[in-house]
Simulated scan of single mutants.
Amino acid sequence: MEGMEPDSPTDRLRPLRRREVFHRYLYWIDLPGPGGDPVRYTVEADGNEDWVALLYADGRRVAKADLPARLPVPGGVVEVDLGLYGVTRVHFVPDDGAERRLAPVRGTLEDLRGRFARRHPGASRAIGWAAVAALAVNLVLAAPQAVEFVSEIPRVAERFGTFDSPVDLPAWLNIGLVFAGAAASVERVLTFRRNRVLDIETIWTDI
Results as ranks from 00 to 15, higher is better:
Glu2Ala: 11
Pro6Ser: 12
Thr10Leu: 14
Thr10Asn: 13
Thr10Arg: 15
Leu13Val: 08
Arg19His: 15
Val21Met: 11
Leu26Asn: 05
Leu31Arg: 00
Pro34Trp: 13
Asp37Leu: 14
Val39Gln: 03
Arg40Ser: 07
Asn48Arg: 13
Glu49Phe: 06
Val52Glu: 15
Asp58Thr: 09
Asp58Lys: 07
Arg60Asp: 14
Arg61Lys: 10
Ala63Leu: 04
Ala65Asn: 10
Asp66Phe: 15
Arg70Glu: 08
Pro72Met: 03
Glu79Gln: 07
Val80Arg: 01
Asp81Pro: 08
Tyr85Pro: 01
Val87Thr: 01
Thr88Val: 10
Val90Leu: 13
Phe92Leu: 03
Phe92Val: 04
Asp96Ser: 15
Ala98Gln: 04
Leu102Val: 05
Ala103Arg: 10
Val105Asn: 06
Leu109Phe: 07
Glu110Met: 05
Glu110Tyr: 04
Arg115Tyr: 12
Ala117Ile: 10
Arg119Met: 02
Pro121Trp: 09
Ser124Glu: 04
Ala133Pro: 05
Ala134Glu: 00
Leu135Ser: 06
Ala136Val: 10
Leu139Lys: 01
Leu139Arg: 08
Leu141Pro: 04
Ala143Ser: 15
Val147Arg: 07
Val150Ala: 12
Val150Trp: 07
Glu152Ser: 12
Val156Lys: 04
Glu158Ser: 14
Arg159Tyr: 11
Gly161His: 01
Thr162His: 05
Asp168Cys: 08
Pro170Ala: 04
Leu173Pro: 06
Asn174Leu: 12
Gly176Val: 00
Val178His: 05
Ala180Asn: 11
Ala182Trp: 02
Ala184Cys: 05
Arg188Gln: 03
Val189Ser: 07
Arg193His: 07
Arg196Pro: 14
Val197Asp: 11
Val197Gly: 13
Asp199Tyr: 00
Asp199Ala: 06
